Amino acid sequence: MEKIGDAILTLLGTLEEILKKADINTVATKTNAQHRTIKQIVGHLCDSASNNTHRIVHLQYQSSPLIFPDYANLGKNDLWIKLQAYNAYDWEDLQALLKATAKHVVHVIKNVDETKLQNEWISALNERISLEAMIVDFPRHFKLHLDEIVALLQD
Rank of each mutant, 00 (worst) to 15 (best):
G13I: 10
T14D: 03
E16V: 05
E17P: 00
A22D: 03
A22F: 00
I24C: 01
I24P: 10
A28L: 03
A28R: 11
T29E: 08
T29I: 03
T31I: 08
N32C: 00
Q34F: 01
H35Q: 07
H35K: 06
H35V: 11
H35N: 13
Q40S: 02
Q40T: 01
I41H: 00
I41S: 01
V42N: 00
V42P: 00
G43K: 04
G43R: 02
D47C: 04
D47T: 06
A49F: 01
N51S: 08
T53I: 01
R55H: 09
R55M: 08
V57P: 07
Y61K: 11
Y61F: 12
Y61D: 09
Q62R: 13
Q62A: 09
Q62L: 11
S63D: 12
S63C: 08
S64D: 05
S64H: 13
P65D: 13
L66I: 03
F68G: 02
D70M: 07
D70K: 02
A72E: 11
N77D: 15
N77R: 14
W80E: 09
I81T: 15
K82A: 13
L83Y: 11
Q84F: 08
N87S: 11
Y89P: 13
D90Q: 14
W91Y: 15
A96G: 09
L97D: 12
L98A: 10
A100Y: 10
T101S: 09
T101N: 11
H104A: 14
V105P: 07
V106N: 07
V108M: 00
I109G: 13
I109M: 12
K110W: 01
N111K: 07
D113R: 12
E114N: 13
L117Q: 11
L117P: 01
N119C: 10
W121Q: 04
S123G: 11
A124Y: 03
A124R: 06
N126T: 10
E127S: 12
I129K: 07
S130R: 14
S130M: 04
L131Q: 05
E132V: 12
V136H: 13
D137P: 00
D137N: 09
F138H: 12
P139C: 04
H141D: 09
K143V: 05
K143M: 14
L144P: 04
L144R: 09
L146W: 07
L146Q: 03
D147I: 05
E148F: 11
I149C: 03
I149V: 10
Q154K: 11
D155I: 01
D155W: 15
